[in-house]
Design a protein around this nucleic acid. Structure first.
Lengths: 150, 150
DNA sequence: TGCTGGGGTTCCTTCAGGGAACCCCAATTG
DNA sequence: CAATTGGGGTTCCCTGAAGGAACCCCAGCA
């Protein structure tokens, strides 16, 4: 085996990377999330090679994060996020928060998020699912779980 | 230019992917976060090629997410997360949450997080930095920001 | 009847990843 | 005082994935 297979590692990061661990997949998911659903649109917006776009779309469909859906009597398809895929957007939202803070520079962030619940432009924060307080790298201990390697 | 350069795109996701957009970087950051800081440890834990590990470490140091620090009179180094790098762990924590939910299977999650603030084993949630309520893909509108492309 | 446009597939070239061998040098060992 | 060891790389070759461009299929339409 030449390229490493991440899907079998006992690590949820590695397994997630098997789904979206090269740079095009997150950008494809981003585009589909903002409403660009067709091959031609994706290809021209991203500037990705057609071959690689085909591979990535098939892979994302295989992994259950996208659904391929015909939209015409002719063989025309659009790609839509499944529930599993929509939750993967969480990862992108956190990438946006980090990129906005550390890489946006003078110009400021390229896009803004307005939160429906409060109507404000804001960004995403990480909190504890149990107590709701902030939860970042330094706020946790990492313990072995039931699915840990033997 | 053969491989696409993501760093110049007007998108915080693409720019973040320029830093950690291939599968090894997140795993390297994970290992360093849990205390594995030396070349040899990383190499044998990950099973990554030595050449690629060297490249990735240099890249992460260049991007300011790792710091290379001598730990001996001999030329021996360890790699530690900078503040910028520690905040990048947020992205990994969200990948873990998603991977635990969708890919862990019967065995359950390989690792658990205990939150210092409440002492409970929990996972990370996304909330709005303004109102604190949940904030996921369907809870936002995406608007052009000041750094949007011309 | 020919044109068009979406959604690919094929082919070739180049470059990045994998794997293994090699190197440098300070400390330790016999 | 050799010789060995071990960390932290570097070099080499081989394979496979990304880029780019051309080609293809087919339904609708002029």
């Amino acid at each position: 085996m030449q390229r490493t297979d991440f899907s079998e590692m006992a690590c949820s990061i590695a397994r997630t990377l098997d789904v979206m661990g090269e740079p095009w997949s997150p950008l494809i998911l981003r585009d589909i999330f903002v409403g660009m659903s067709r091959f031609e649109q994706l290809q021209s917006d991203l500037g990705i090679s057609r071959k690689v776009l085909t591979e990535r779309l098939n892979h994302l469909v295989d992994r259950g994060v996208l659904e391929r859906r015909p939209y015409d009597k002719r063989p025309r398809y659009e790609y839509v996020l499944t529930g599993k895929g929509l939750e993967l957007i969480d990862v992108l939202m956190v990438m946006v928060a980090w990129g906005d803070k550390w890489l946006a520079g003078e110009a400021g962030p390229p896009v803004l998020y307005r939160h429906h619940a409060c109507g404000e432009v804001s960004h995403v924060e990480l909190s504890c699912s149990h107590c709701g307080k902030p939860m970042h790298a330094n706020d946790i201990d990492v313990l072995p779980g039931p699915g840990a390697a033997a």
